[in-house]
Design a protein around this nucleic acid. Structure first.
Lengths: 341, 341
DNA sequence: CTGAAAGCGCTTACAG
DNA sequence: CTGAAAGCGCTTACAG
């Protein structure tokens, strides 16, 4: 049960003042090179490591980033977290992680904890409830104290700060068009991530494609997986659906499962395009054609942005970085008719 | 860009000393109830929150837990992390998360960061490389400083500390016996999590079952998913395999995928039992019969243990908590023959 | 080039 | 019941 060595102890051993030790270790130009060398040697021999609490108390920087995500069990957020952790630790920052569980209350608590804990910046993706109810009062403190914040994936116009999203509208439009070009006549939009900003954007992209194709858009939101099969089947039959654009990975897989269990062949009778490149879609049979969202890259970019903001190396006005996604073609869709010839 | 209110400022407003303010806010019995009330009122009105850095610098407690996991993309670790976060935040602790990426070096860095950051305790699961090379020197500092540590899932006898594991041997034994009882003749053990303590335990359980059945054990370790299909098929054919006990979720699913792609029917021709109750196994067709490891519970228990250790509310000798698992029967296995009658 | 002093924002033994 | 003082472990303007 050793205690950590302090500057005071080193000073005593070296017979110099605490100030000298501190300056020597910080490579101050004020200090004689020989003294520096001696100090450093003794510090090393005594396993000296500065007490970060004390340093932070003076310097006001904690080299800590707060991260709030709605959940960690979906591949998208797990991957973003991985990207955040990798980049942060490579740049010498620690991360405190909070999971909001889609709830405003937990998000509020998390924000308070992060503020009180003196994080240098916050990276987050909004809870569904926050987006559904448009509650943003709990951000007041963060803005009052001028703590930089970057939002990724689930963002809001109400919050003026740096943001990272993907080109949701275009890619969803493209996904719907691809289904059409591969021969699908009745394409629906399926989502279980209702009430989120990304869901809205993807809906818009889908709807605009339907408009272009002069087809009636059909949007199916399923809020509870308990009734997933039942709800989906009803629509599949009623509208003779042969194409699905699903707003997330799990709903895409669940749709395929339901369809296969009821005699549909995929992609012949029903084609599906989902979102997120995760193990689920990769390993399902048939494997899922999906929108690669570059989750890890989003995480890494978020860290770069927030650190740029903390160190004031980027321009004052808020940045909105839009990451270009692409469609990863696998086996849940057919080739486009044009290509088949 | 407000600054946070300090005790000094409150003291000035109230015309009392800093000590009085501090004691009043901490509900010290020394202070006059009326004074307390006045102080609290003003504190509230000024949005006072104590500076945790200063408090920690005095009190030596940071109310922060360090967590190191080998990866976050597997459901098992994502679920444990979720359990850890939930329990920790409900008990007023923050968590700093580090991902070792299975590497000793990253694990060492993470440990150093957590020590330097003055976490009150550490919860971790060892990196594969750490277990493979039996490198434990990087733990010296943690033990020297007496920072409590609890290991879960991937543990080591070399490290004397609290541990949480599951009954790996028994349950793997049981899994193999169940396959046998359902009619499987040639049961192999498949694993991609080679070199880990859990893999070893599960192997032992499997081997003991084979011994009991007077069958020759066959253990297949695949270290690289690139050659998964090739390696597995060779063994499936050579040994006429009709049962697989897989040490983790992904290898179980990959095995089913390979088998299905090569004409095997599951569970008729080949039965599979995996580990971890995750979305992958739940959604695959057929759904995976698997060992429920109660990952979230492991996470929650880890938090309880470490906090008990920090607050010294548990006995001095190291605790080893063994969580009883169970087999979740789904569609990748047949009923036992006994039950079929 | 070195050191004494003040201060970051708290807590707590000690005096009164 | 209230307050002055010391101290947690640092950094940094200021003196010498």
């Amino acid at each position: 049960m050793e205690r950590k060595t302090t500057l005071k102890e080193l000073a005593k051993i070296l017979n110099v003042s605490i100030s000298t030790v501190s300056k020597a270790l910080n490579d101050s130009s004020e200090i004689n090179p020989d003294t520096k060398a001696r100090v450093k040697e003794v510090a090393l021999a005594n396993n000296y490591v500065p007490n970060e609490l004390a340093q932070s108390l003076k310097g006001k920087k904690t080299k800590t980033l707060g991260v709030i995500i709605p959940e960690v069990l979906s591949q998208f957020f797990a991957k973003s977290l991985h990207g955040i952790e990798t980049m942060a630790s490579s740049l010498g920052y620690k991360i405190i992680i909070c999971i909001s569980n889609e709830s405003v209350q937990k998000e509020t608590e998390s924000l308070n904890i992060l503020v009180n804990t003196n994080v240098d910046g916050i990276i987050m993706s909004l809870a569904r409830e926050t987006q559904a109810t448009e509650s943003y009062d709990h951000f007041k403190k963060v803005f009052d104290y001028g703590i930089p914040i970057v939002l990724f994936d689930r963002v809001s116009d109400t919050l003026v700060c740096d943001k990272i999203t993907v080109n949701d509208r275009e890619i969803t439009h493209k996904a719907a068009m691809e289904l059409h070009n591969s021969g699908c006549k009745n394409i629906i939009y399926l989502s279980t991530i209702y009430d989120t900003s990304v869901d809205k954007q993807r809906q818009i992209g889908y709807t605009s494609a339907m408009k272009e194709l002069r087809s009636k858009p059909e949007i199916l939101h399923i809020k509870d997986y308990t009734y997933f099969e039942e709800n989906l089947l009803k629509v599949l039959k009623k509208s003779n659906v042969d194409g699905i654009v699903a707003a997330d990975e799990l709903s895409a897989i669940s749709a395929m499962k339901t369809a296969l269990n009821h005699g549909y062949r995929i992609p012949e009778d029903l084609s599906v395009i989902g979102f997120t490149n995760g193990v689920l879609g990769e390993n399902f049979i048939p494997s899922l054609t999906t929108v690669e969202q570059y989750a890890e890259e989003q995480g890494r970019t978020a860290v770069e942005l927030i650190i740029g903001r903390i160190q004031k190396t980027i321009a004052a006005e808020p940045v909105h970085r839009i990451i270009k996604t692409s469609i990863l073609h696998r086996n849940s869709t057919r080739q486009s008719l044009a290509l088949q010839k």
